[in-house]
Amino acid sequence: MLRRLLEEGQRVRLTIDGKPVTACVGDSVAAAMLSCGLRYCRTTPISGEKRAPYCMMGVCFECLVTIDGINNRQGCLIEVREGMRIDTQLGRRTVE
């Protein structure tokens, strides 16, 4: 859905739903997901509708994802790190 204007940035390796991908240092998790071609990052706990990042500034909570096993994190506020494990969220999240 998004493309990078510049390809020279320093890369980090991470996984999204188990699939290895790369992103640039300084990317937020939400930016990395969108740049890797993901159309949505979660389904809602109520109707199961697909949702994607909407505001990119921490107010809408649409970009909630699971990062390194911790769910409901705001992907737009967290920068990617080498080796990060990102997972899309389906509906309600388990407590552990």
Binding site: M1, R3, A31, S35, P53, M56
Partner: peptide, 17 residues
């Protein structure tokens, strides 16, 4: 998305639709 969201992606990651 909001225009502001896409602008943030442009500013912080050099990403365009």
């Amino acid at each position: 998305m909001t225009a502001g969201a896409l602008q943030t992606l442009l500013k912080s990651s050099g990403l365009v639709p």
